[in-house]
């Protein structure tokens, strides 16, 4: 790993001030550190935000669940409040990586990295999340821009993610058996205001499948999905799954998710 300067920020203001185009914020480090070791990334400054207390924790209000950026996957998975308000979100957290990754990895880190096969981005899309940073509040639909790309500026720190509590929801994924990343993950959520179908793993970036959502709006049952055609164009094709297989799995896992709602 190439050398860097390590800073532990005491508050968000300091973290943002230390940041530059040649720095990275460090939370769990479950992607950042391996990426640096593999030579895929290098930074002059690593700014640790783990010790900023206000960035961690879970709050449930009547309509939303707000999770601090440095809250660990294991904390979300084991939270009684999350299990009660949005059980599918706790289950998603429980299915990320392995126990040691869940003991370090954070929700803010996951969405800031925006891995095309990460789990949390699909939750943000399905649960109408608002991403609160030190500067602004961003709708999830605008936050995720492309492969490993978000609309965050280099000095911008995610503080919390606010999820709308749906009437019902389920996240179903076909995990890569080694990494537990999603080959396909489909998050179906039915809100009073409408239905979202967040899909991860399929394309270069998470997306809301409007065709599936449209069919489910007319009839919220897995049979409503049968007639929806999912095109494999633009879908990922790799050693784990071809684009045609992924297209088919989006449909299969959307049905599974609706049945589990």
């Amino acid at each position: 790993m190439k050398t860097f300067n390590y800073h532990s920020a005491k508050d968000v203001k300091e973290a943002s001030k230390l940041a530059s185009s040649n720095s990275a914020f460090l939370a769990g480090g479950m992607t950042t550190i391996p990426s640096m070791k593999l030579g895929l990334a290098s930074y002059k400054d690593i700014i640790d935000i783990k010790r900023i207390k206000k960035l961690s924790g879970i709050k449930v209000s009547g309509k939303t669940v707000t999770i601090g950026a440095t809250t660990k996957h294991s904390e979300v998975a084991n939270s009684k409040d999350v299990k009660k308000a949005i059980p599918s979100l706790a289950a998603l957290a429980e299915g990320i990586g392995d126990p040691q990754v869940r003991n370090r990895g954070t929700i803010g880190g996951s969405i800031a990295n925006n891995d095309p096969a990460a789990d949390y981005p699909s939750a943000c899309i399905a649960l109408n999340a608002t991403i609160h940073t030190n500067n602004r509040s961003i709708d999830a639909e605008k936050f995720f821009r492309g492969m490993f790309e978000t609309c965050l500026k280099s000095t911008e720190v995610i503080e919390a993610i606010e999820f709308s509590i749906p009437e019902k929801s389920s996240y179903q994924k076909l995990p890569n058996p080694a990494s537990r990343y999603a080959i396909i993950g489909v998050y179906v959520a039915k809100h009073k205001t409408g239905i979202n179908v967040g899909v991860t793993g399929a394309k270069s970036c998470v997306y809301n499948d409007k065709d599936l959502a449209g069919a489910l709006t007319k009839n919220f049952s897995s049979s409503a999905i049968d007639s929806v055609k999912i095109s494999s164009s633009g879908m990922n094709s790799d050693i784990h799954a071809s684009s045609d297989y992924r297209a088919n799995m989006v449909k299969a896992f959307a049905k599974k998710a609706v049945d589990a709602c």
């Binding site: 480090g29 479950m30 550190i33 391996p34 040691q100 990754v101 370090r104």
Partner: peptide, 10 residues
């Protein structure tokens, strides 16, 4: 935790 992916400084 996995100690290869934790910085000692932190």
């Amino acid at each position: 935790i996995k100690s290869c992916t934790a910085l000692a400084a932190d």
